[in-house]
């Protein structure tokens, strides 16, 4: 009986310890990200053609992929270090947003998500990223 208690403890105590450690690193829930009306209805000025999508993919690879992952699943190599859930761009939660809303979020940023309006001052390039994000839909 004593042996059983000890052997159970060998597994349970480390398991509790590991759970205690890892539970502290869970992503916090994504809080609402309000988008100004001006942006919600903003028209995408760049046609979603092959050239724009290729440009968007290049920018995605350089600036977005490390957190959002190759396919936008939120599984990039830096995602685990984030305090905020990077989201799954293949799902309706992202894809149902307007182009203008995505443009606003890329431009302005929030918390872990950096603002790109200074790093990418050409708005057409940000629209190209929006066009590329649309191709991540499943």
């Amino acid at each position: 009986m004593k042996k059983k208690v000890i052997s159970t403890g060998i597994f349970v105590i480390p398991a509790l310890f590991i759970f205690g450690l890892t539970s502290g690193f869970k992503f916090s829930d994504q809080k609402p990200w309000p988008v100004p009306d001006k942006y919600k209805t903003m028209k995408n000025t760049v046609a979603s053609d092959a050239e724009s999508i290729a440009a968007g993919k290049t920018l995605w690879t350089t600036h977005c992929k490390s957190c959002h992952g190759t396919k936008g699943l939120g599984d990039g190599p830096k995602a685990a270090q984030l305090k905020t859930e990077p989201g799954d761009f293949s799902k309706a939660e992202t894809q149902s947003q307007t182009d203008g809303a995505l443009f606003y979020k890329i431009s302005e940023g929030r918390d872990d998500m950096p603002s790109f309006k200074k790093k990418i001052p050409d708005q057409d390039e940000i629209w190209s990223i929006v066009n590329y994000v649309r191709t991540l839909k499943k």
Partner: peptide, 16 residues
Amino acid sequence: TVAEAPRAPAKVKPVK
């Protein structure tokens, strides 16, 4: 890398 933001997509821009 200092491109302005002319909105017309057809406009020829400096290479980046």
